[in-house]
Amino acid sequence: MSLTKREVENVAHLARLEITEGEIERVVENLSSIIDFVDQLRGADTGDVLPMAHPLDMSQRLRTDEVSESDQRKRFQANTSAVEAGLYLVPKVIE
């Protein structure tokens, strides 16, 4: 199965990845060959097999809802360039 350029552009948009004009041809080719490769799974007889999401048979652990971490906002915000008054800055979203 070969993917079209439009399909690949749509997937790139869903994944919020910019793909340049120069890259797109190779991406279409590679993604098509990967999808072709994993297509062999369709032939497997999985009738009433239950899907396996997790390797260990365990249930989600719950914890009591209490404060366990201290406020380290300043430290965490040192990892971005765009901070003002303790807030992260992004391009204007609401006009």
């Binding site: 994993v38 799974l41 369709r42 497997a44 999985t46 097999v49 239950l50 899907p51 396996m52 999401a53």
Partner: peptide
Amino acid sequence: QAQKVRQL
């Protein structure tokens, strides 16, 4: 389907 084959 991949999750089912993973089970197998």
